[in-house]
């Protein structure tokens, strides 16, 4: 087994760790972090697939590059939503 083979196996592992965490955790901020971890796993699979050849395949690399930017934007929206949800549940607890 080479480094790339191991990376190809670590990808799904990280994805599932993140996904299970995302579904089981109650706290919204930690959920968003778990989703980011899962996306790291997906990127690892794509980049390991790209790195199997001597000259890395630029097409999956371009896909991952797009994915990183989208993930940052999505995280921003998710955090804004989470903040509003937390603020509303704080208010209803205070009453």
């Amino acid at each position: 087994m080479t480094f790339v083979d191991l990376a190809l196996l670590a990808g799904p592992a990280i994805m599932m760790i993140g996904l299970v965490g995302h579904l089981l955790i109650g706290d919204l901020l930690r959920r968003i972090i778990a989703l980011n971890v899962a996306s790291g796993g997906v990127m690892l699979v794509l980049l390991a697939v790209a790195a199997r050849e001597d000259v890395p395949d630029p097409v999956p690399q371009a896909l991952v590059l797009t994915g990183i930017v989208i993930m940052a934007a999505v995280t921003g929206v998710a955090l804004a939503l989470a903040r509003r949800v937390d603020a509303v549940s704080d208010e209803s607890e205070d009453r």
Binding site: F3, V4, A7, L29, I32, I33, N36, M43, L44, L47, A48, A50, A51, P56, Q61, V64, L65, I68, V69, M71, A72, T75, G76, L79, A82, R83
Partner: peptide, 30 residues
Amino acid sequence: LWARLDAPDIALAEAVLGGGVTGALLVDAL
């Protein structure tokens, strides 16, 4: 890891976006 997988473009984007922008967002949310 991306740099080790022959993907310097992604490594650069990950460092600036994952560490920089997402990091700033998360730390601010704390």
